[in-house]
Computed example of a mutant assay.
Amino acid sequence: MENTTWVNNHTGRSDFDLVGLFGQSKYPALLCVVIFVDFLMALSGNIILILLIYCDAHLHNPMYLFITQLSLMDVMYICVTVPKMLMDQVMGVNKISAPECGMQMFLYLTLGGSEYSLLAVMAYDRYVAICHPLRYPILMNYRVCILLVSSSWFIGSVDGFMLTPITMTFPFCRSREIHHFFCEVPAVMKLSCSDTSLYETLMYLCCVLMLLIPVTIISSSYLFILFTIHRMNSAEGRKKAFATCSSHMTVVILFYGAAVYTYMLPNSYHTSEKDMIVSVFYTIITPVLNPLIYSLRNKDVTRALKKMLNVRSVSQ
């Protein structure tokens, strides 16, 4: 009887305690400032990149449409977790209600799944542009691009709608402390008092599918691209193609590497501290790096930025 009451009391609670990054740090105030600066850099960098692409007619092509979507996803991604974490640290509160936790989980799953798919679309776009340049305007017309972008968002939303309700309906009768800085599925699942082994197996298979298909597309695309670059006679063409592809591969390795660790490695490889550090890569660091990678290493974007700055200085 006492055990039943104890379980009911714990499952009846409507909030969780987020024991996040600051609780593990010796210098929480300094860490808070660093994360806030990263947050501002990610917001400003991605928003500037979106505005540049929107305002410059020379950047109105499929590659930059996909980069715009990537920047939009990064802005939303970092806004899902970081503002809540910083506000909790400043106000000395670390609680999150079950509905807020579910919404946060749904949004990051949707955005993460969408970004996995979009990175595969971007690899395919580079494959068509480099390996089939004459057919590129036909194969990657506006209608096809919109379809590919919409499919990326749809696949991500399926991931969110599928995993979030199941995760949040499990009974939580252990400690309500989530050893993470946001409601990530593996961290929340550790609090459940029921047998989650079947669900974890299904989630593992789902993640393998979500990662395996994009990785196959990306690997195949870049394999063909490497062969094509090797056969190019123009050294300038090789250099430009390699610079574009290496930028994309940097993003892919960071994002997919963190996802593989979080969702595909056995539990024996995981600790709360490691999980939080890896999550920092794809929730905070990747949104900061993406606009830098796609702007500083891209001559078209830097040219558009200089043009915009020159116009502003002349008008002033």
Score class of each variant (00 low, 15 high):
Tyr269Cys: 11
Phe106Gln: 03
Tyr294Met: 15
Cys245Asp: 10
Glu2Thr: 07
Tyr54Asp: 11
Asn9Gln: 10
Arg312His: 13
Cys193Tyr: 08
Ser117Ile: 02
Phe154Tyr: 09
Tyr127Asp: 08
Met276Gly: 11
Thr216Ser: 13
Ser246Tyr: 08
Leu254Glu: 01
Tyr124Leu: 05
Met105Cys: 13
His230Asp: 04
Ala98Ile: 15
Gln104Leu: 11
Ser157Gln: 08
Leu205Phe: 07
Glu115Cys: 11
Met91Phe: 12
Ile225Arg: 02
Asp15Glu: 13
Val311Ala: 14
Val80Met: 09
Leu223Pro: 00
Thr68Asp: 14
Arg174Phe: 01
Asp17Trp: 04
Gly113Phe: 07
Glu100Asn: 11
Ile225Glu: 10
Leu134Cys: 04
Val215Asp: 11
Met276Thr: 00
Leu31Tyr: 01
Trp153Asp: 04
Phe181Gly: 02
His58Trp: 09
Val33Pro: 01
Phe172Gly: 06
Ile78Ala: 00
Pro266Ser: 07
Met91Ser: 14
Ala42Asp: 01
Met189Ala: 03
Met276Leu: 07
Tyr54His: 11
Gly237Gln: 11
Asn3Trp: 04
Thr164Ser: 14
Met105Leu: 15
Val7Phe: 13
Ser247His: 00
Leu49Trp: 08
Tyr116Ile: 08
Thr169Gly: 05
Gln24Trp: 05
Val90Lys: 02
Cys145Val: 13
Ile293His: 05
Val93Gly: 07
Glu100His: 07
Phe16Ser: 06
Lys84Asn: 09
Ile178Lys: 09
Val7Arg: 13
Asp159Met: 09
Leu139Gly: 03
Leu296Trp: 14
Leu111Gln: 05
Cys55Gly: 06
Thr169Pro: 04
Phe39Gly: 11
Ser151Cys: 05
Asp159Leu: 05
Asn3Gln: 13
Glu184Tyr: 04
Val144Leu: 06
Ser14Leu: 13
Leu43Asn: 13
Met85Arg: 08
Gly20Arg: 04
Cys131Met: 03
Arg174Gly: 09
Met189Tyr: 04
Gly45Val: 03
Ile78Leu: 03
Val7Ile: 10
Ala304Val: 08
Leu72Gly: 13
Cys193Thr: 07
Ser192Pro: 02
Val75Ala: 10
Thr286Phe: 15
Thr283Gln: 13
Leu72Cys: 06
Thr216Ala: 13
Lys190Gly: 15
Ser234Trp: 07
Gly23Cys: 08
Ile48Arg: 09
Thr262Gly: 07
Leu86Ile: 10
Met276Val: 06
Val314Leu: 09
Arg13Thr: 03
Gly92Arg: 01
Leu309Gly: 03
Tyr222Gln: 02
Cys193Asp: 08
